[in-house]
């Protein structure tokens, strides 16, 4: 029920405060009433027709990096 999904903003309608997001192949219109300063190309979390939050690209990379670093460590350590 609380599961939101990541999607990329492909169009913004400032007047209506809505955006079109791409979820893989599917496009959807969502409300931007709950977020600030979102831009074309940003990734946002979508839940019940609203963008809830921006997804930080740098933080996502950093988290993945963290997993990967541990993987490298594993190679060195028997």
């Amino acid at each position: 029920m609380c599961h939101a999904i990541p999607a990329q903003i492909v169009a913004i309608d400032e007047q209506a405060d809505t955006a079109t997001v791409a979820l893989g192949e599917v496009k959807k219109d969502v409300s931007l009433a709950l977020v600030q300063d979102v831009q074309l190309g940003d990734y946002v979390l979508i839940h019940v027709g609203y963008a809830l939050n921006k997804i930080s690209t740098e933080e996502a990379e950093r988290t993945l990096q963290l997993f990967a670093e541990m993987a490298e460590l594993d190679v060195v350590q028997p």
């Binding site: 029920m1 609380c2 939101a4 409300s31 009433a33 709950l34 839940h47 019940v48 027709g49 809830l52």
Partner: peptide, 13 residues
């Protein structure tokens, strides 16, 4: 309307 804090803001809007 049901849900936790994730689902509440859309109801307020």
């Amino acid at each position: 309307a049901i849900g936790f804090e994730t689902t509440t803001p859309p109801s307020a809007v």
